[in-house]
């Protein structure tokens, strides 16, 4: 696969480490309690279809990316720097 890095353009997926569901960006507030952390740590969506997921450009510029990918076709619909996504959410 080729990952469209927002700064570097198309780069081979072999340069990246895959983590999974981008919901990991949303770490609960420490006051949210154990149940919220349980969801955060253990529960992930694994959709057959469009999925937002985290990829780390380990053999590249060390950016964490949020890649939107269709898990059925491997079509990639977009990629953003995770810190931009997070910044936007904050």
């Amino acid at each position: 696969m080729l990952i469209p890095h927002p700064l570097l353009g198309l780069r081979d997926a072999a340069e990246f480490t895959y983590l999974g569901d981008a919901a990991l960006l949303n770490r609960p507030d420490p006051g949210a309690g154990e149940a919220a952390f349980c969801d955060y740590v253990y529960l992930r969506d694994n959709p057959a279809g469009v999925h937002r997921e985290l990829w780390y450009h380990e053999q590249g510029d060390r950016s964490w990316l949020v890649v939107t990918r269709n898990t059925l076709t491997h079509e990639i619909l977009g990629a953003e720097l995770a810190r931009d996504v997070k910044g936007g959410a904050a």
Partner: peptide, 10 residues
């Protein structure tokens, strides 16, 4: 300039 993998080395 680019950073990439070369024979499994960064």
């Amino acid at each position: 300039a680019a950073r990439t993998a070369l024979h499994h080395m960064g």
